[in-house]
């Protein structure tokens, strides 16, 4: 019973604060662009509205892909610790999360390719290419972190940080690399190539109508929530529920502000970038960890 309540707690947090923070993010972008911006609850209306529309399906692969994407991400989400608030204590293993996370991504890729629109295929191909780019330095940094603490349990790392201080100060290089990779995971500029509207007409989403769009928007929100949560847990010391949300918001707004003033890389430039500077920094981080500094 308590587990169910905790799972519900995590999901509701992700739903409510995920969408709220997205709304705040839009507001921040608007202020950078010298305008007023939409209300903070705009994203709730957007998602709910898309659910009321009458859309089209593009065959069972598409339906199944969308459901798999959302289901996979929700499953991932339940394992993510929100600071010291954990739905399944002891099971919040980093590798479980990474593994489950691919289910959502693959579901999305499958569904979007199932639409048969070439722009969607290009978008999915770009998204997977970009994933290759950022996963390599990201995993190297995280692995070095896990090696350092001799555990892959995120809650344990959060607890250690509450004693030893935040990892962002102990592993500044690693945190920088993880943040650059986070920008790519969120799909924000300069790593916006997979959905680039001006180039490939918003890529994977091109054929999504009504409910499917709503579900994908929710899935996107949850994905962002997972990605930023892991960053906050691993590098900013998690903290209790409210501290966690505050840190979350800080990271999110920081990412939004960077994305507002940068253009996007071409896809191969993005991968090239990830495999040069962040990868090099990641190796330096590994060296430092192994050398015990």
């Amino acid at each position: 019973m308590a587990v169910a309540a905790r799972v519900a707690g995590v999901l509701l947090t992700a739903f409510f604060f995920g969408l709220t923070f997205e709304g705040i993010g839009r507001k921040v972008t608007a202020r950078i662009q010298k305008r007023y911006g939409p209300p903070w609850y705009q994203n709730f209306i957007d998602v709910l509205k898309t659910l009321t529309k009458h859309g089209w399906t593009h065959g069972w692969i598409f339906d199944f892909g969308v459901v798999m994407a959302l289901g996979g991400v929700i499953a991932t989400l339940t394992f993510v610790p929100l600071g010291n608030f954990v739905a399944f204590p002891g099971l919040d293993n980093f590798f479980v999360i990474v593994y489950l996370f691919t289910v959502g991504a693959l579901g999305m890729a499958m569904g979007m390719v199932g639409t048969g629109n070439p722009w969607a295929s290009i978008g999915v191909a770009r998204a997977l290419t970009l994933m290759l780019g950022y996963e390599v330095p990201y995993l190297i940094v995280i692995t070095s972190l896990l090696y350092n603490f001799k555990t892959s349990n995120i809650s344990t790392i959060v607890e250690i940080q509450s004693v030893n201080g935040w990892n962002i100060f102990r592993f500044p290089i690693g945190a920088l690399v993880a943040f650059i990779c986070l920008q790519g995971m969120l799909g924000k500029e300069p790593f916006e190539a997979p959905i680039a509207p001006a180039e490939i007409a918003s890529g994977p989403m091109v054929e999504l109508s009504a409910k499917y769009m709503g579900l994908l928007m929710l899935m996107n929100t949850f994905m962002e929530f997972v990605e930023i949560s892991i960053f906050v847990d691993l590098f900013l010391g998690g903290g209790n529920y409210f501290e966690f949300l505050l840190k979350y918001l800080t990271v999110w707004i920081f990412a939004i502000m960077i994305s507002a003033v940068l253009p996007r890389f071409r896809i191969e430039q993005a991968v090239y970038f990830y495999w040069t500077v962040p990868l090099l920094l990641a190796f330096i981080q590994v060296f430092l960890v192994v050398a015990g500094m």
């Binding site: 972008t29 950078i32 662009q33 010298k34 305008r35 500029e189 300069p190 916006e192 680039a196 001006a198 180039e199 507002a260 003033v261 940068l262 253009p263 996007r264």
Partner: peptide, 16 residues
């Protein structure tokens, strides 16, 4: 040029 390259802020400012 912010449109095709994704730097929307420059477009917002310049059009204003």
């Amino acid at each position: 040029i912010g449109g095709p390259t994704g730097m929307y802020t420059s477009m917002y400012w310049a059009v204003a």
